[in-house]
Simulated scan of single mutants.
Amino acid sequence: MADWSQTWTFFQGEWHEGNLPIWGVRTHAIWLGSSVFDGARVFEGVAPDLDLHCARVNASAKTMHLNPDVTPERWIELTHDGIKRFAPGTALYVRPMVWAERAGPQALPPDPESARWCLSLYDTPMRKPDGFSITLSPYRRPTIETAPVDAKAGCLYPNNARAMLEAKSRGFDNCLVCDMLGNVAELANSNVFMAKDGAVFTPMPNGAFLAGITRQRVIRLLRADGISVVETTLRYRDFETADEIFASGNASKVMPITRIGDRALQPGPMFRKARELYWAFAHGG
């Protein structure tokens, strides 16, 4: 049995401690993949952009044709209530989820009014910014015509997982995943930036990936600090010849990449500036 970290989940009107089993064998989400979720962070007592994460999970639910009876304001209220159940300063991951419980008349489209939801908070220490290695994945990101890439949907993540597992089989921690045209979209589990000649570049949102909330925040912070950030079409070769590469995401916020292929990299000034600015923003600086 898994040794889960301290977890509290709000479901059907009350808080439950531990790993709560809430899905049955006929739940549409585990049978036909109708779940959506989001992920926010609470570290050192703050939850940056919590309102945006709570709004996004509801938008994702709408994209999947689900009608949950919970508002972004309710998610926020419950998050702050849940934080009180942990020791002060605990690094928490906040995960609101929505899913369909029942199928519709033809099974595949769920019954939108059967949407259920829960909010889980659990102890997850922030990873140290010690960097990680990347390569190019042979797998691709789907398009809007082939998958619900405009939602933070659980059904998208098995493809990300197989990309990461393939990279790990070759001795890398993560990988750059391209869209169907061969342009870099993102890492297997987060958005990506590169720096070259004093400017920062990141893949242009083109419908193949979610332009993450932390990504958007980092872009705004860097631009406000006078740094040029260009959203553009990038190929793997651009990253191979970059001065530095770093990632942004909900779990670890801003992280350096220290190897691409056989080439070692050092955490550079753009990474350090992005992380410094993000931490200042998160703490009201």
Rank of each mutant, 00 (worst) to 15 (best):
residue 33 G to W: 01
residue 71 T to P: 04
residue 254 V to C: 06
residue 41 R to Q: 09
residue 75 W to F: 15
residue 4 W to I: 08
residue 280 A to T: 08
residue 247 A to C: 14
residue 20 L to K: 04
residue 239 F to S: 11
residue 19 N to A: 12
residue 176 L to I: 09
residue 234 L to H: 08
residue 182 G to P: 13
residue 206 N to M: 02
residue 206 N to T: 10
residue 16 H to K: 09
residue 121 L to W: 04
residue 11 F to D: 10
residue 279 W to K: 01
residue 232 T to I: 04
residue 136 L to N: 12
residue 19 N to I: 00
residue 266 Q to C: 02
residue 224 A to I: 00
residue 18 G to D: 04
residue 97 M to F: 11
residue 16 H to G: 02
residue 89 G to D: 14
residue 284 G to W: 02
residue 37 F to N: 02
residue 55 A to K: 15
residue 64 M to D: 06
residue 254 V to G: 06
residue 20 L to A: 00
residue 230 V to R: 14
residue 274 A to G: 11
residue 114 S to L: 05
residue 59 A to D: 14
residue 132 F to P: 03
residue 173 D to T: 09
residue 223 R to H: 00
residue 195 A to N: 09
residue 174 N to F: 01
residue 90 T to R: 10
residue 183 N to K: 15
residue 248 S to K: 00
residue 228 S to G: 10
residue 45 G to F: 02
residue 63 T to L: 00
residue 212 G to F: 09
residue 24 G to L: 07
residue 254 V to D: 07
residue 103 A to C: 14
residue 208 A to M: 01
residue 200 V to N: 06
residue 122 Y to I: 03
residue 25 V to N: 05
residue 148 P to L: 07
residue 73 E to F: 01
residue 201 F to G: 10
residue 107 A to H: 09
residue 128 K to A: 15
residue 142 P to L: 07
residue 22 I to V: 14
residue 86 F to L: 08
residue 211 A to P: 01
residue 124 T to C: 07
residue 222 L to S: 03
residue 13 G to Y: 13
residue 76 I to L: 02
residue 116 R to Q: 15
residue 157 Y to T: 05
residue 29 A to L: 01
residue 100 A to M: 06
residue 125 P to S: 08
residue 264 A to L: 13
residue 190 S to V: 05
residue 199 A to Q: 14
residue 21 P to W: 02
residue 177 V to D: 12
residue 56 R to K: 12
residue 285 G to I: 04
residue 25 V to A: 13
residue 144 I to E: 08
residue 246 F to E: 08
residue 260 I to R: 02
residue 18 G to E: 01
residue 91 A to I: 00
residue 99 W to V: 05
residue 99 W to F: 14
residue 55 A to N: 09
residue 91 A to K: 03
residue 55 A to H: 07
residue 241 T to G: 02
residue 94 V to D: 00
residue 130 D to T: 14
residue 165 L to N: 01
residue 273 K to V: 06
residue 78 L to A: 13
residue 257 I to P: 04
residue 135 T to C: 15
residue 138 P to V: 04
residue 150 D to C: 04
residue 13 G to N: 07
residue 246 F to S: 11
residue 32 L to M: 13
residue 204 M to L: 15
residue 207 G to W: 02
residue 224 A to Y: 01
residue 190 S to I: 03
residue 122 Y to K: 00
residue 53 H to R: 05
residue 18 G to P: 06
residue 222 L to P: 04
residue 111 D to N: 15
residue 27 T to H: 12
residue 213 I to C: 01
residue 222 L to R: 05
residue 266 Q to D: 08
residue 268 G to M: 11
residue 205 P to W: 08
residue 190 S to K: 09
residue 135 T to L: 03
residue 233 T to H: 08
residue 209 F to W: 04
residue 68 P to N: 10
residue 60 S to L: 02
residue 205 P to Y: 03
residue 3 D to V: 11
residue 73 E to P: 02
residue 181 L to P: 00
residue 10 F to R: 13
residue 241 T to E: 15
residue 109 P to A: 10
residue 257 I to T: 03
residue 66 L to F: 01
residue 198 G to Y: 06
residue 142 P to S: 11
residue 9 T to W: 11
residue 276 E to M: 13
residue 243 D to H: 12
residue 129 P to H: 13
residue 35 S to K: 08
residue 78 L to M: 09
residue 219 I to L: 11
residue 252 S to L: 00
residue 112 P to S: 05
residue 89 G to W: 07
residue 192 V to G: 11
